[in-house]
Amino acid sequence: MTATDVVRDATAPGPMAPRPFRVVARRQDTHDTATLDLIPLYGEQAKWRSGQFMMLYAFGVGEIAVSISGGALPGEPLRHTIRDVGAVSHALVSSQVGDVIGVRGPFGTSWDAMDAVGGDVMFIAGGIGLAPLRPSILEAMRRRGEFRHVILLYGSRPGEGFLFTDEIEDWERNHGFTVHQGVRAGLAAVTSAPTFDPDHLLTLACGPDIMMEVAAKTLVGKGVPADKVRLSMERSMHCGIGLCGHCQMREAFLCVDGPVFNYDQLIPLLATEEL
């Protein structure tokens, strides 16, 4: 680029400016986690794909990355499930129906669960990690007939509680999901007597790094191709748009190249500690 050809649109709001959204519904999921439904004060509802995230802004407190936990069908409110762990998440979780919060996004890559059509799909969630998976789980539920086995493995830490328990029951009872849920639920439950076909299994995992890595390694060990295991990664994020540098893992910007990655892309990045 030379000195003269930088393009600029001076009137459009920059990608760092949040849009105000109103909380239209709020549900307390566990002692520290709540789900908010949001609609924009002005303009159109955002459009997103499953697996993407938004930067949510609590007025005067700060901004954090939060995955979308609601379905991606047109007309649905924007839904987020947030765990209270610090100043910003606390402010968001504490917001009530009628309050206004800021939204930027959607950002990042998608789960693309429909890649598994015709085969088996497995969701592996650790704790709050079930929330980012929910849009894809809903997709699988709505189009259940197009998949063979649908498996949900959902573990949480002691005392953490479980999200969406009523829905999980529905998925299991009415939609033929195989559900393994429990405190510290392990992959052994699934792999000891596998119902899936390793060659036709797509796995989507979201949870702590170490949990996802162990799961991915185990599955690859059972013959699942590494590019058929997708992980949603979490790092510090200040911009969500590839500019601030916080979310980097070697060459990857987790905010634009991720958060959802195929495991084969992550193998070299997870091989080194503190990358």
């Binding site: 680029m1 930088v6 393009v7 001076a10 920059g14 990608p15 590839g242 500019l243």
Partner: peptide, 20 residues
């Protein structure tokens, strides 16, 4: 900096304004 801040999907608006 032009490549990083002003040529990708999301651009740093303020950088573009100063760079122009």
């Amino acid at each position: 900096h032009d490549t990083v801040l002003a040529s990708r999907e999301f651009a740093d608006k303020a950088y573009g304004q100063r760079r122009e």
